[in-house]
Nucleic acid binder design. Structure first.
Lengths: 134, 134
DNA sequence: ATGGTTATTGCACCTGGTTGCAATTATACT
DNA sequence: AGTATAATTGCAACCAGGTGCAATAACCAT
């Protein structure tokens, strides 16, 4: 189901600004930084305020249309439809690899058994060193 | 080995401001937020600038005297001597539990085998729901 | 198509954290 | 102790991201 439809169902309004932001996030398969989204939006529709963009991204995140994660103190966004996965990022060369969503299962099990804790492992950013940089 | 000695060895200077910051971090066993450290420092030595505090914390982190992690977009710090561990934090009630350092071993092994990646799992903040809030 | 309601926008300002730079001061040397 | 020198400080300005509010505009009912 498309983001726009989900918006409508919640009684939210589909403004030109929102349509553009949703388009941009869906066009680019890779993750985009907030900065990239802002400049992309503003190049296509000058005058759109950054607070509008941040608010739209926050809203899309709450609707589970978009996932937000943080790399190096900067936020990155990608749309949720491409399936869940984690990101491993090399702290030396910056290379980023998508990694299987199930990798944290043993940790989830252990936390649940030991502490009764239900952990949120969704779109986790794992930093470290890749094979080339070790 | 104490932080102050490590400082000296690197040719860095032990100023009154730095001495105070180091003291505060060592006095309090729990993790302190940047805000708490700033107000604690300034109550004991008014006029110390926040940039001095942030720079000192950054320096201590680089010397591995202090660990910095992020919870809810705020930074927390604790000294490294108390041994490594991770933090599980309930996103509903805010309760925080320290958790065993080895919990990520299976993930480390899997990442290494699959991608040749060496992950940094140090002082990870794990959010989720605790047993009381499920 | 028009008008009313209410979500959304743009603005200006705020926040925590960071940075460049001139003034200060801890340290090493004499 | 006095001086040179380079690290450190405080300041002011900056950054990304977030917020309160009045003006605007999307949507619904007529």
């Amino acid at each position: 189901m498309s983001c726009s439809v989900i918006l409508k169902e919640k009684g939210l309004r589909l403004t030109p600004q929102r349509r553009l932001i949703v388009d941009i996030i869906h066009q680019d398969d890779a993750h985009l930084t907030a900065e990239e989204i802002i400049s992309s939006v503003q190049s296509k529709m000058p005058g759109v305020n950054k607070s509008t963009i941040y608010r739209t991204l926050e809203m899309l995140e709450e609707l589970n249309c978009v996932f937000k994660s943080e790399v190096d103190d900067k936020f990155i966004y990608h749309h949720a439809e491409e399936g869940h996965h984690h990101h491993i990022i090399c702290r030396k060369c910056g290379k980023s690899i998508d990694c299987d969503e199930h990798i944290f299962h043993p940790v989830e099990t252990a936390l649940s058994r030991k502490y009764g804790f239900h952990a949120d492992f969704k779109h986790v950013i794992i930093t470290g060193l890749c094979s080339d940089c070790l």
